[in-house]
Design a protein around this nucleic acid. Structure first.
Lengths: 141, 141
DNA sequence: GTTGCTGCAAATAATTTGCACTCTC
DNA sequence: GAGAGTGCAAATTATTTGCAGCAAC
């Protein structure tokens, strides 16, 4: 979820819409996952700690796991086996570089095209990860 | 790598071709990854332990990591974040059920078709994982 | 024979849990 | 005010590493 960053109010609304209780910690954690690009749990923790130094890592883990169950975030694993998170949950395509491990969202138009293609051949994809060697890594070789 | 199970000799040849030293442990571990369907490390350990009870889990991890570097196996992560392995390393498509977590190789013909499609639109995929809700899970709902 | 491989046990990293206290609704 | 949410510390799980003996080339 890059582009327009959601405001605290939007996040509050999002949590409410899923029947979750509103706390400052939860809003901050949602904000962190939205602001950072496919962060790992500790990235989220560090982001949140700056604004709320008393927060515990356990709260971050518990909240992330709550968000997963509520369908607010999706979890994915990069090629170094770190668990990463993203706020978007509609089906879309992630691209991962097998060399540097970077992950990014595929641009929406192509993403939809690929998902449509997969549907057409009989799969019913809720997501898709494409493994590539990214341009940067290809050039460095 | 299902279908025809490779013999110990084939595995020996495979290891040699990558310049790896041949040991009984390595052959067994390769055999296990080949025989089991996307096993996790402990599955491999259990399989191997039956035929060689003295083997240590550390050897399994070390050998797996060696195989990865040698490009003999690929590692992937299921939707419960367990690390799984497969002997095939040529580009192919894995399908993962987001509900039950099962992973399977897509049938070769469709797999090639999808990879060709991705190439055509400018990606250069070395692999692809499609997330779905499998038929079994869909029916149970 | 030499160098790399293995088994064991201990170290590290990532994530989860129990409990007492605090806050949202 | 009740019950869920949080912080802290301890527990658990997955994986890696040091070291001494053993095996492959």
């Amino acid at each position: 979820m890059r582009g327009k960053a959601p405001e605290a109010e939007d996040l509050t609304r999002l949590l409410k819409s899923r029947g979750l209780k509103i706390t400052a910690q939860r809003i901050l954690i949602a904000e962190a996952i939205s602001a950072l690009d496919h962060p790992v749990a500790v990235d989220v923790y560090r982001y949140v700690s700056r604004k709320m130094p008393t927060i515990g890592l356990a709260t971050v883990y518990r909240t992330i796991s709550l968000f997963k169950k509520a369908g607010i975030i999706r979890e994915l694993t990069d090629l170094k086996n770190s668990t990463r998170f993203e706020l978007r949950t509609e089906p879309h395509v992630n691209v991962m570089c097998v060399n540097c491990g970077r992950i990014w969202d595929m641009e929406a138009h192509r993403s939809r095209k690929i998902l449509r293609y997969l549907s057409r051949i009989g799969l019913n994809p809720v997501g898709c990860d494409v493994l590539v060697v990214c341009r940067h890594c290809r050039e460095r070789r």
